[in-house]
C-alpha cells in the first residue's frame, strides 16, 4: 500500500460567511497527476491555494478539518510556512514571470533559500520544463520578452528550481494557444515520474488526457473522486455525467 502524499480529512473552508469547501475527504497518491475539475466557482482554486497556504493572503479565510502532506498538517502550529511552500511548486493561471531576466526568474527561489550551485539548478530546471534549448543561450534577456507559452514554462522552471515534491497547477493552459498548451500537457506527463501533480482545470478533455485520478467538485462539495478512466466511463453521479458531457461547466 502506497502512502498518500496528500490526505484531506473533513476539510471545510469559508471566506467570511461564504462556505467554499464542504467536508472534503480524499487522498492523493505520490507520483500521480490528479485533476480537480468542476465549473467556475466550485472551490477548485481555493483548494490548491490551501495546500500551500496562499489562502493566508485573504484575511476573511478560515477553515476546519485538516490537510496532511507527508503526514504533516499544513495548518499545524509547528509548521514552517516557508518550508511548506518551498516543498510545493505553484504554477498560476496567467503566466506571471518576474520583471527580471530569465536567469534571475529561475534563480530567485534557490537564492531565497540559500541553495548552492545556482547555475546548475537553473539549467536543470529549464531542461525539465523543456525551455533550455530555446533560452539557454540568452538567459540574461528579460523574461517578459518571451511568448506566453514560454513564460508559462519559465514559471514552471521557477517552481521546479526549489526541488518541490508537489506541483500545483491552476488552469495552467487557460491563457495559452493550443500548441503551447500541448507542450505543457506533455510536460505534466513527464514530470509525474518525479513529482506529485495536482492540476486544476475545467477542461474535461485535458483532465482525461493527462490525469491518473480526478476529483469533481460542485458548489464546494466533492461529488466524485477516483481513477480518471473510471469516472469518465461510468460516472456515478448524474451531475458528474452532466459536466463531463458538457451540459454545464
Amino acid at each position: 500500500m502506497v502512502e498518500a502524499k496528500i490526505q484531506v480529512n473533513d476539510l471545510n473552508a469559508w471566506y467570511g460567511d461564504f462556505h467554499v469547501l464542504k467536508s472534503l475527504n480524499f487522498e492523493i497518491l505520490p507520483n500521480t497527476v490528479t485533476a480537480i475539475m468542476g465549473p467556475s466557482g466550485c472551490g477548485k482554486t481555493t483548494f490548491i491555494r490551501i495546500l500551500n497556504r496562499l489562502c493566508d493572503m485573504v484575511p476573511e479565510f478560515h477553515h476546519t478539518g485538516e490537510i496532511l502532506i507527508d503526514g504533516q498538517d499544513v495548518f499545524g502550529a509547528d509548521i514552517d510556512v516557508y518550508e511548506l511552500r518551498k516543498g510545493i511548486g505553484f504554477v498560476f493561471q496567467k503566466p506571471n514571470p518576474f520583471p527580471m531576466s530569465i536567469y534571475d526568474n529561475v534563480a530567485y527561489g534557490p537564492k531565497t533559500h540559500g541553495m548552492k550551485d545556482i547555475n546548475e539548478i537553473v539549467q536543470r530546471s529549464l531542461e525539465q520544463s523543456a525551455l533550455w534549448d530555446e533560452v539557454g543561450h540568452r538567459l540574461d534577456e528579460p523574461a517578459l520578452k518571451l511568448s506566453g507559452g514560454q513564460q508559462q514554462r519559465l514559471c514552471l522552471a521557477r517552481a521546479l528550481a526549489v526541488n518541490p515534491g508537489i506541483i500545483l497547477m491552476d488552469e495552467p493552459v487557460a491563457f495559452l494557444d493550443p500548441i503551447s498548451a500541448q507542450k505543457i500537457e506533455e510536460l505534466i506527463m513527464t514530470l509525474k515520474r518525479d513529482y506529485t501533480i495536482v492540476l486544476v482545470t475545467h477542461n474535461v478533455q485535458q483532465a482525461l488526457r493527462v490525469s491518473d485520478s480526478a476529483a469533481f467538485l460542485y458548489l464546494g462539495e466533492l461529488i466524485e473522486y477516483g481513477r480518471t478512466s473510471l469516472i469518465a466511463e461510468t460516472p456515478k453521479d448524474p451531475r458528474t455525467e452532466a459536466f463531463l458531457t458538457g451540459r454545464f461547466g
Partner: peptide
C-alpha cells in the same frame, strides 16, 4: 505592482 507577482514569490517560500 500586480498581486500575482507577490503570490509567485510567496509560493516559492519567500518571506
Amino acid at each position: 505592482v500586480p498581486l500575482s507577482l507577490r503570490e509567485a514569490s510567496l509560493a516559492l517560500g519567500a518571506t
